[in-house]
Design a protein around this nucleic acid. Structure first.
Lengths: 169, 169
DNA sequence: TCGAAATCCTACCAACGCGGTTGGTTAATC
DNA sequence: GATTAACCAACCGCGTTGGTAGGATTTCGA
């Protein structure tokens, strides 16, 4: 599994917030019940979203959460990044903003100076993921969730302007 | 981290095999030393590749492994799939070859019939990953590893009709 | 014919992250 | 002042990960 349940829950939470009128806050309890998710765990999830500035909150009675921006100005890579941290296919991608190629194993002093072929592969994978996340907005997901599921069997039309997904969406 | 070390080790192993002349087998020991990886663990990794039919082997002295096909006829999604199993961003994508949308939580009898918005997102992510893996061949990685480290260069030949990669591979 | 080199096979294990739970404290509303 | 809700900090069982251990089997060269 590529993403943990934090991402799943967090995205659902964001969609739920996007479905609400932004004028009044929505309580976590309401969301937990609607999505049948454990409230206490959702608290930890939403904390990440708040730290990332994606949602705002009000405490006390009738408090709750709401989106800090309109849903069409929130791309899903922001959301997923807030929930999962940096999206990296492999370890050597993390604190490695420099172009250094040092995928050899530590310990031995000898540095591997051959081209790290796997890095090319993981770069492409990362690019593929990033692209799909950046080109999807929260508003799209909200709109998708609003459509009545007339027939559960067939997937509805992909959002116009998007390329068709390869494995038959 | 999206992929485990099995994928990293296995891809390296395949690249290493791709660098050899295919006429004679390469022993795991040689690969383990070249890549500084634990031999006993590599055995488990290569077993997956063999089960998937990507490599062949000969036992006994002077035995070893070799690619079962030319490297330009091996796409990396085959390799990664053999190593990691099915590539799924989220659990509900696994034994779900049918078009059913049932991302609700089990337990309660009530089925969630609202459109599962997260599924749309994970579909796109999966598509992005699949595309990047399918359009990369082992031969490319081998060729890349042969190049002296000049400039990582430009991403070659994205599938026609696709837009260019966003984060600058 | 023997030993070395290699694949092949099964079991075991420590450590870590995941998916929560528990139990509170603080702040706002009625 | 009671209720509602966000906020906070531990804690914890469990499964997966990344190996190791130890052997069995096959093949080749001397």
């Amino acid at each position: 599994m590529i993403f943990s349940s934090k991402a799943e829950y967090g995205v659902r939470l964001m969609v739920e917030l996007g479905r609400q009128t932004p004028t009044q806050p929505t309580s976590l309890k309401a969301i937990a019940e609607a999505e049948r998710l454990p409230l206490a765990y959702l608290e930890q999830v939403v904390a990440r979203l708040k730290r990332a500035g994606l949602v705002m909150s009000a405490r006390g009675a009738h408090g709750g959460y709401w989106l800090s921006r309109p849903a069409d100005q929130i791309t899903m890579d922001e959301v997923v990044q807030a929930l999962e941290g940096a999206i990296a296919p492999m370890e050597c991608f993390l604190s490695d903003t420099t172009e250094r190629v040092l995928c050899s194993h530590p310990g031995t002093g000898v540095e591997e100076h051959r081209h790290c072929a796997t890095k090319l592969l993981w770069m492409r994978v990362q690019g593929g993921i990033a692209r799909s996340l950046q080109t999807t907005t929260l508003a799209e997901l909200v709109e998708f969730s609003r459509r009545e599921s007339v027939v559960p069997g067939r997937e509805p039309a992909v959002v116009p302007g998007r390329e068709p997904v390869v494995p038959a969406v």
